[in-house]
C-alpha cells in the first residue's frame, strides 16, 4: 500500500471525571512516508492519541488519514491501511503459532494461503525473527513477541504504522535493526516513546509531537 499522510487537528481526549484533556489537544501533520516521533512522559496520553488516530477512541478534534477524516463509515476502510503496535505485544497477538499469527492479516485480506505464508515469512525475516517462525507465542520472551507483533503489522503492508513503545523490550542490537527497518520502510511511521528518542533521531526520525507531563 502507498504511504499515507496523517493530519491531527486539535485532537485530544478527556477521560470520564478528569479535569483536563489527556493528551491536551494536538495539531500536527506528517507527509506520506515521513518517520516521526511522538514523545512524552509516562501518562501523558501517547497511547490514547494513537488509539484516537486508529479510530478506536472518540473525542474532540479531527484525524485525517490520507486526506480522509477518520469518522463514520470511512473508519473501517481507513483502518485497512493502518498498523498499530500495542505497548504490550500480547494485546495484538492472537493465534498460538508465530507463523500463523503473522499470516492472520494477509489471510483475512483474501490472500491465498501459500501467498499469505510467503508474506508472513518475509515479514518475520524483515524484523530478524525468521528463527521464530515455527515456535509458539507462549514460549517467547517479551522482546520476541514484540518482533512477532511488528511482523504481523508489516505482513499487511500498511501505509501508516503507529508504534507504541516498540523498542521498550528489545536489546540494543534488535533496537538498531528495528529502527533501521522502520527508517527504510515506505510507510509513514509515528513512533511513540518516552525514552528511546535519541536512537530514533539518529535513525532519521524527527520529533512531530511532544506531549506535556502526565
Amino acid at each position: 500500500m502507498e504511504p499515507l499522510s496523517l493530519a491531527l487537528e486539535g485532537v485530544g481526549h478527556r477521560w470520564p471525571g478528569a479535569e483536563r484533556d489527556t493528551p491536551a489537544p494536538v495539531t500536527a501533520a506528517l507527509v506520506p512516508g515521513e518517520k516521526a516521533l511522538l514523545e512524552g512522559p509516562i501518562g501523558s496520553g501517547k497511547t490514547t492519541l494513537l488509539l484516537r488516530i486508529a479510530g478506536l477512541r472518540e473525542g474532540p478534534g479531527r484525524v485525517l488519514v490520507g486526506g480522509t477524516e477518520m469518522k463514520g463509515r470511512a473508519v473501517s476502510t481507513l483502518r485497512r491501511g493502518i498498523g498499530l503496535l500495542w505497548q504490550n505485544p500480547d494485546d495484538g497477538l492472537f493465534l498460538p503459532g508465530v507463523l500463523e499469527d503473522v499470516a492472520l492479516g494477509p489471510v483475512n485480506d483474501g490472500l491465498p494461503p501459500a501467498r499469505a505464508e510467503e508474506r508472513a515469512r518475509a515479514a518475520l525475516a524483515a524484523v530478524g525473527a525468521s528463527r521464530l517462525a515455527d515456535r509458539e507465542i507462549a514460549e517467547l520472551s517479551r522482546g520476541e513477541r514484540q518482533l512477532v507483533a511488528l511482523a504481523g503489522l508489516l505482513a499487511r503492508e500498511p501505509g501508516l504504522l503507529l508504534l507504541d513503545e516498540p523498542l521498550s523490550a528489545l536489546d540494543s542490537a534488535a533496537r538498531g535493526k528495528v529502527l533501521a527497518l522502520l527508517a527504510a520502510h515506505p510507510a509513514t511511521v509515528l513512533l511513540a516513546t518516552h525514552d528511546g528518542g535519541e536512537a530514533a533521531r539518529e535513525a532519521g526520525f524527527r520529533e512531530a509531537v511532544r506531549l506535556g507531563g502526565g
Binding site: L56, R79, R80, W86, D91, G92, G97, N108
Partner: peptide, 23 residues
Amino acid sequence: ERADRTADALALRGFDGRLPAPP
C-alpha cells in the same frame, strides 16, 4: 479490559473470521 483490547486489535488486523491453516 482484555476483551476490549482484543476486539480493537482484531479490528485493526482486519480479522474477518478466517484463520490461517495451522501446521
